[in-house]
């Protein structure tokens, strides 16, 4: 009997893990399309990951992405936007701004220095 229960709970646990971590819907936050010459701006809070995780920004325009890390986890102390050749230290509780001007439409992932936490920049 206990074995059957363990099997059932085990399968439920696996299904829950799959659903919880791999089926999550990432909420996309879009940077407003501002008039030419003015940079769009977005704040990303860095705590246990990035919120918002997915941002969408306009192509060909400069967007300022402000990272504010409030989580002391060492892993998050660096952010890497490899496609934009940016690797920045994120000192705790200090806003760090990176400016990006994507030239092509597409999806550009970003992550922490150890590639544990991930986010995406969608260029439209």
């Amino acid at each position: 009997m206990d074995k059957i229960l363990v099997i059932i709970f085990g399968l439920l646990g696996i299904a829950f893990t799959f659903w919880f971590f791999l089926m999550k819907r990432e909420k996309e936050v879009s940077v407003e399309n501002l008039p030419a010459g003015k940079a769009g701006e977005i704040d990303i809070k860095v705590s246990g990951g990035y919120s918002p995780e997915v941002i969408s920004i306009p192509v060909g325009k400069t967007t300022k992405v402000n990272f504010l890390r409030t989580d002391p986890t060492d892993c998050l102390s660096e952010v890497v936007l490899g496609d934009f050749k940016i690797r920045k230290e994120l000192p705790l509780n200090q806003k760090v701004t990176v400016e990006i001007t994507p030239k092509e439409i597409g999806e550009y992932p970003y992550s922490c220095g150890m590639n544990m936490y991930h986010g995406r920049i969608v260029v439209r």
Binding site: F21, G48, G49, T73, Y117, H118
Partner: peptide
């Protein structure tokens, strides 16, 4: 404590890492 400190906010984001 640092493993918990990293895990709790990560779970809120439905992400997991080594911690």
């Amino acid at each position: 404590w640092e493993f918990y400190r990293a895990t709790i906010p990560a779970l809120k984001h439905r992400t997991a890492n080594m911690d």
